[in-house]
């Protein structure tokens, strides 16, 4: 990635907490689910956020889009093209400059024809037809209800919605589950095409194989934060090129690598260790790991580990 490319999305020290009842308690307390997360996406670039299920990846997307539930508290900084993305600014951008691709067809109104939904509040019929044609959705699809769509059609409808207004930033939340390999590849190639035209794509997925195929950079998500961001090449080269012990373990656990799991589980959001979140599963742990762990630049990537070299 060359230096002159503009940063479209920049997230710094994002913290998300929910004010809620904990198990067995009668008073609402704050449950912090995303901790000091930093990530950035440049124009023409696909950044994949990978991590296991339940690590809060979707919440990252929802906080950028400002669609978190009312009891969420958001801290830190989110910038779009260098300007702070506050409630007011995001309203101007959503559906036009920033598009969201949700996980499934459940995100469509069950009682509305898909063409009207894809047109949304900003589009028009001609543009919708044009986009549908591009994704091989013929005119019969226009007047179908979401429950009548097949998995692949639903996926293409959701992507069509996202590209209606030619956005500068696309945030895709698990765009591939439920699709067979060919369909998944087709979807990812669609993203690649969009990125090659200059769109910045933030793709959230638990499928690292697919991330390998199209992403320019990969961010590894663990226990509510990003522990490492590095170029996809580093991940393909293997653990020796990675910076964080969790990313290394993550790659080792892949079927085509050593298929080797590591001990332990991700810590629960309500019960986090004070220092490094990975410390209790880490083979290199020492006293330094109990302190504050900043995100630092290392060999062209970023890592949140004091020992990484």
């Amino acid at each position: 990635m060359s230096e002159e490319k503009k940063t479209v999305l920049n997230v710094e020290d994002l913290t998300v907490a929910f004010n809620m009842y904990q198990k067995g308690a009668f008073k609402k307390t704050d449950l912090e689910v995303i901790h000091k997360l930093s990530i950035d996406v440049k124009e023409g670039e696909i950044v994949a956020v990978v991590g296991s299920s339940g690590s809060g990846k979707s919440l990252l997307a929802h906080s950028i889009l400002h669609i978190l539930p009312k009891n969420a508290k958001v801290g830190g900084k989110i910038e779009y093209c260098g300007k702070e993305l506050d409630d007011k600014y995001v309203k101007e951008l959503l559906g036009r400059d920033i598009a969201f691709i949700p996980q499934s067809v459940d995100y469509l109104d069950p009682l509305m024809h898909v063409d009207k939904q894809v047109i949304g509040v900003y589009g028009n019929k001609e543009r919708q037809r044009e986009v549908f044609d591009r994704y091989h959705l013929d005119e019969r699809v226009d007047t179908l209800y979401p429950f009548q769509l097949s998995g692949g059609m639903a996926r293409r409808v959701l992507i069509s919605s996202a590209v209606m207004e030619e956005p500068k930033l696309i945030i895709a939340d698990e765009p591939t589950p439920g699709l067979n390999v060919e369909m998944a590849m087709e979807t990812l190639n669609n993203f690649r095409e969009l990125a090659d035209k200059g769109t910045a794509v933030l793709m959230i997925t638990h499928d690292i194989d697919l991330a390998f195929e199209v992403a320019d950079r990969i961010a590894v998500f663990y226990a509510g934060t990003v522990v490492e961001i590095a170029s996809t090449l580093d991940f393909i080269m293997g653990r020796g090129f990675l910076r964080h012990p969790y990313s290394a373990a993550f790659v080792d656990a892949l079927p085509q690598k050593k298929f080797k799991p590591i001990e332990g589980t991700q810590p629960y959001a309500g019960n986090l260790p004070s220092g490094c979140l990975f410390a209790d599963r880490c083979p290199y742990r020492d006293d330094e790991c109990a302190g504050e762990i900043p995100m630092r630049d290392l060999r062209g990537g970023k890592v949140r580990c004091v020992h990484a070299t």
Binding site: H62, L94, S104, D106, Y107, D109, M112, V121, Y122
Partner: peptide, 26 residues
């Protein structure tokens, strides 16, 4: 609180549009 309203919000629909386009219908 359903997903399709969340998505409508993410696509830039305001409260009024959400009520008129989705809520009343459903």
């Amino acid at each position: 609180n359903s997903d399709f309203i969340l998505y409508a919000r993410a696509r830039g629909e305001n409260e009024k549009q959400i009520v008129l386009r989705h809520v009343i219908r459903n």
